[in-house]
Every structure is written in structure tokens, then in C-alpha cells.
């Protein structure tokens, strides 16, 4: 990324870091994370069995919506402000502009997640802090997926309010209703659907995969057995591929839409 790309990235980062919705969600996440950590410490609970999994549940709720909100107005917001044309007429390629949009917002996400988990880790004390901080990178990747989805939605919607509605709907779908849907599928089919299929569907959802990966981190590899699932978590390569696909495919679609658009109005 050249100087122009870096300038765009910095602008995106500073702008998003000042966005009030991102601030509200980030502060709320930080407060709850610190509260969870304090509770775990006060209860003298095992960080692996109480604080860690609680933070995972919290992050699985907050980080996807933060990422999605960060991404939802990347393109459509510019269009509504009548600045998309000007932006795309800068001496940078559209791919560079998209990359700068994503990177700047990703940095804002990294700051928000780092703030929440960092404070929680600091409160947990030196012994448990590092354990909790292991959550950071995977949580950031989860956020990046939803950021990428948000950016994608922002490229094909015509209004920012539509994009906002869609990212919230997507968040509900992937974070809440997906697992419920799978449960419903099991009940409706009376177990006719293979457990492997259900497991694959769970792993295919970034929110589900994140929860299982993190539970495994805290509770060990036998967790899946303990949950009564007769399957194994995908290997590191397969997991990396799932995460990469969830991040890259929406961005690739965004790039395709943006580069094919002939008028930026």
C-alpha cells in the first residue's frame, strides 16, 4: 500500500475510532469484560472454567456486531454523503481504496477488542492475564469476518439504513439463530441428519467455530466429546481456510462490485 493508501487507512481508522456507535459498543464490551474478569477473580474461580469461557461468550456477542457496524457504511456511507465519486477519483486504484477502508476499520476494531480484552486481562492479574490475552487474535479474526461481511453489504446497498438493518439481521442470524436453527433441524428430522453434517454446519459458521475453538482452548480437546458430539474439530489448516474464506470472499465480492461500477454516484 502506497502513501495514498496509508493516508486513506489512517483517515478510516481515526474516523471510525470516533464513531459513537463503535465507541458505545466498545465501552460496553470493555465494561462487561472487566466485570466478568473481576467476578472471576472475586470468586477465585478457575480462569479456564469460568472467566475465559464467559469472556468468549461475551466476545462472541459483541465483537461480531462491532465488526459488522464498523463495516456497514464503508461504501454506502460515502455514497450517501456524496463523497464516493470523489473518493474513487483519487489517484489510487479501487482495490487500494477498498483495502484502505478495510484496514483502517480493522485497526479500529483491533483497538476496541484490545481495549476490552486488555482491561479484562489486566484486572485478572498477572497469572491469568496472559491466558485471557490468548483470546485476542482469534477474537480479532472473528471481528474481521464480520467487518468483511459489513463492507460487502455496504457495497451493494443503496442506503445506509438498509445496510445497517442487514448487518444487524446477519448478526442475529449467525450469532443467535444459526445454532437454534440447527437444533430445530435435529428435532424436526428426529435425528435423521447425521451428526457430522450438523457439526460441519456448526464449524461453517464463524461464530460457532469461534466458540468451539475457544472452548477447546480453555477446556482442552476433550471438550467436544464432553459436549456429546461424536466429531472432532477441524485441524488448524482447515480452520485457517474457513476463517480465510469468510474474510476473503465477502471482500472479493466487494472488490468485484466496486471495480465493475462505472459511475460513482
Amino acid at each position: 500500500m502506497g502513501r495514498i493508501g496509508l493516508a486513506l487507512t489512517w483517515h478510516e481508522f481515526v474516523e471510525r475510532a470516533r464513531d459513537r456507535w463503535v465507541l458505545v459498543i466498545s465501552v460496553l464490551f470493555a465494561l462487561l469484560a472487566v466485570g466478568t474478569s473481576l467476578y472471576g477473580r472475586g470468586a477465585e474461580a478457575d480462569v479456564q472454567m469460568l472467566t475465559g469461557p464467559s469472556l468468549v461468550t461475551l466476545a462472541a456477542l459483541f465483537v461480531p456486531i462491532t465488526g459488522a457496524v464498523l463495516g456497514h457504511d464503508a461504501i454506502v456511507g460515502e455514497r450517501e454523503r456524496n463523497t464516493l465519486g470523489l473518493l474513487l477519483s483519487l489517484p489510487a486504484s479501487r482495490l487500494e481504496i477498498l483495502a484502505a477502508k478495510f484496514t483502517g476499520r480493522f485497526l479500529a476494531l483491533a483497538l476496541a477488542v484490545g481495549l476490552g480484552l486488555g482491561l479484562a486481562a489486566a484486572v485478572a492479574g498477572a497469572d491469568h492475564g496472559m491466558m485471557l490475552f490468548q483470546l485476542y487474535l482469534p477474537t480479532l479474526i472473528l471481528g474481521a469476518v464480520f467487518l468483511s461481511l459489513g463492507v460487502c453489504i455496504s457495497t451493494f446497498t443503496r442506503r445506509q439504513s438498509t445496510a445497517a438493518s442487514l448487518v444487524v439481521a446477519l448478526w442475529f442470524l449467525l450469532v443467535f439463530f444459526y445454532d437454534l436453527g440447527l437444533l430445530g433441524l435435529l428435532v424436526l428430522t428426529d435425528g435423521a441428519v447425521a451428526t457430522e453434517t450438523i457439526a460441519t454446519l456448526v464449524f461453517g459458521n464463524p461464530a460457532g467455530l469461534y466458540r468451539l475453538e475457544m472452548m477447546e482452548l480453555f477446556a482442552g480437546p476433550e471438550l467436544v466429546d464432553d459436549l456429546g458430539m461424536a466429531v472432532e474439530l477441524p485441524g488448524p489448516g482447515a480452520r485457517a481456510a474457513i476463517w480465510a474464506a469468510w474474510t476473503a470472499i465477502p471482500l472479493a465480492i466487494s472488490a468485484l462490485i466496486l471495480t465493475r461500477r462505472r459511475t460513482q454516484r
Partner: peptide, 8 residues
């Protein structure tokens, strides 16, 4: 200042 940066 940002505008200048956009043009390198």
C-alpha cells in the same frame, strides 16, 4: 491535511 495525504 487528510486531503493532501490522499494525493501523496
Amino acid at each position: 491535511e487528510f486531503q493532501a495525504g490522499y494525493f501523496g
